[in-house]
């Protein structure tokens, strides 16, 4: 008897408010490997999906930003644990998506998991490192605390489908922001698998929303959305960034300063991405008996 078994193909959907809907537009687009072979159909998100994702992210913001830093650290670490558990799947997907040799794919996935752990350890250091007790000249107690900026639209790197994605996503949520991520257009599969990890971890629904589709189609809607507070345009073609930055100015969004070319994600990340999405709040109170 023949032992050939037909595999059950996975349907890749959007990750929105903790659920996995198809695009409201009903559209999908084929995703191929680097050799051009068909891998899967990905949902092709519409502007309405983007709008719904912003609503979900805003709804989740209060809870996530209000969670204790210790709790956010625990939740993020749990994500790393689950990534580790799906290591082989990620290696396969990264390898297929990026056309990497198995050994390189393996080290890339390992780096992504380690990066996640690194940011998991940051959550409860942010206020210590970036906050301050201000020695003001007067009878006042003054302190400054960093707070998350709000809802961030992240255009994930187009090349590095997992390590790059983790490197831009983890610092956003580590400090308590929530986000809408537009996955790399042609290499979205690791992002969708990551969303499955997030869904089964303790990250509350809506904290991370992942859209797959056409970056150029979705970007203007997110860049001009009044309820989006910040933009990471790293995954947007340099030629398109100017218009998006102009749109962002309409509501004074924070726009990350990102290099034109995708950086080497294996380098130590530093604190720049954490800092870029923090607001400093200074509080004053008199000191008197």
């Amino acid at each position: 008897m023949s032992e050939v078994r037909l595999t059950v193909a996975k349907t890749y959907k959007l990750y929105l408010g903790g659920a996995f809907p198809r695009s409201e537009s009903g559209r999908s687009y084929p995703v191929t490997d680097q050799a051009g072979a068909f891998l899967a159909n990905a949902a092709q998100a519409s502007r309405k999906d983007a709008r719904d994702a912003v609503v979900a992210a805003r709804k989740a913001f209060g809870g996530w930003s209000g969670a204790t830093a210790y709790n956010r650290g625990q939740v993020l670490y749990r994500v790393a644990e689950l990534l580790e558990g799906r290591r082989d799947q990620f290696i396969a997907e990264v390898s297929a998506s990026e056309g990497l040799k198995p050994a390189v794919a393996k080290s890339t996935v390992d780096a992504a998991i380690d990066r996640w752990v690194w940011y998991a350890g940051w959550t409860d250091k942010i206020a210590t490192v970036f906050g301050a007790a201000n020695p003001v000249a007067g009878p006042y107690f003054s302190f400054s605390v960093p707070e998350p900026t709000g809802v961030v639209a992240v255009f994930a790197p187009q090349s590095s489908s997992l390590l790059g994605l983790v490197s831009v996503l983890a610092p956003v949520i580590a400090s308590g922001n929530t986000c809408v991520v537009v996955a790399g257009e042609d290499r979205p599969l690791p992002a969708i698998t990551l969303s499955e990890v997030l869904a089964t971890s303790d990250v509350p629904g809506g904290v991370v929303n992942i859209l797959t589709g056409r970056t150029a189609e979705l970007a203007p809607w997110l860049a001009s959305h009044a309820d989006v507070n910040a933009l990471d345009l790293g995954g947007v073609a340099a030629a398109n960034r100017v218009e998006l930055e102009k749109a962002a100015a309409g509501t004074v969004k924070r726009v990350l300063r990102v290099p034109v070319e995708e950086p080497d994600w294996t380098q130590a990340p530093g604190t720049g991405r954490l800092r870029a999405l923090l607001e400093t709040k200074t509080v004053w109170h008199p000191m008197g008996a």
Partner: peptide, 12 residues
């Protein structure tokens, strides 16, 4: 809090 319009070079 319980004051207003205080400024100081050390306070962001």
């Amino acid at each position: 809090a319980n004051t207003f319009n205080r400024f100081d070079p050390t306070a962001p």
